[in-house]
């Protein structure tokens, strides 16, 4: 695992300026395009919480999704098909499960660290202050959310050989997650039959877990452990997928 973390640090160092620009500009764009406009449409949620306070975890997850997507795409698509580095790595003594879990976890660590910088900028722009506990919860929630997102894009990156399929798939998945997981709009705006399905999504469970922790002070065991279990199981399935894709 250490080798994979060091590798992420080396990669980050190699493209420090573009990454720093993304991390600094992304929360500003999200704030200008989503937060400012949406708060004039939705003043308060159904639970009488101001929209800005309700939506910031969703915006944080959105920023995290945008940061982690290229990391995963690079490791599982580009390094598999373009540079073949993943093939060489598969010849090492590590099992496919270890390779997938180390690549995903190191991507999550980088994604969460970069997201944290963006979170502080976003919260500053939105004039929201959160306590230490909320900060710890949001780090846990972002890590869990990253686990699901990383696995989703790993599956996508491993199961296609065409770059246009990746872009199409990534766009559809991102839009789906935004509107199906309460990132920007709460479920009360949707028909009940749709809500019943969306509530079962691990991404929406994570946001529900965080919001119930912060706004109601309740730790919902199911909303935490179900996405965690799905994430771990999905990582295992991705390792099987990688084995099949590499024909080993």
């Amino acid at each position: 695992m250490q080798a994979f973390l060091i590798r992420r640090f080396w990669l980050l160092r190699q493209r420090l300026i573009p990454t720093a620009s993304l991390v600094l500009v992304l929360p500003i764009i999200v704030f200008l395009t989503i937060s400012i406009g949406m708060k004039n449409i939705i003043m308060e949620t159904m639970g009488n919480i101001s929209y800005e306070e309700w939506v910031y975890p969703g915006l944080i997850m959105l920023v995290n999704t945008i940061i982690i997507t290229p990391i995963i795409f690079r490791d599982f698509y580009f390094l598999r098909l373009e540079s073949q580095t993943l093939v060489t790595l598969s010849l090492s003594p590590l099992s496919k499960y270890q390779i997938v879990i180390y690549l995903i976890f190191s991507a999550i660590v980088e994604g969460v660290i970069l997201s944290m910088i963006s979170i502080f900028i976003l919260l500053y722009l939105m004039e929201i202050s959160i306590g230490i506990l909320s900060l710890i919860y949001i780090i846990i929630a972002v890590s869990l959310f990253s686990l699901i997102i990383a696995n989703t894009f790993t599956t996508l990156s491993l199961s296609t050989h065409r770059i246009n399929h990746i872009f199409l798939g990534a766009s559809i998945i991102t839009l789906f997650i935004i509107y199906s997981s309460q990132l920007l709009i709460e479920f009360e705006f949707y028909p009940k039959s749709v809500i019943d399905i969306f509530k079962l999504l691990p991404t929406s469970m994570i946001l529900n877990w965080y919001r119930s922790m912060v706004f109601q002070g309740e730790f919902n065991v199911n909303l935490f452990f179900i996405p965690l279990t799905i994430g771990m199981l999905w990582t295992f399935l991705n390792s099987i997928l990688m084995k099949r894709v590499l024909k080993q």
Binding site: R7, W10, L11, Q14, R15, L79, S83, Q84, T85, T88
Partner: peptide, 11 residues
Amino acid sequence: PHSSDLDPELS
């Protein structure tokens, strides 16, 4: 292998 399989972004 015949062609490069190095990670182009790493030294």
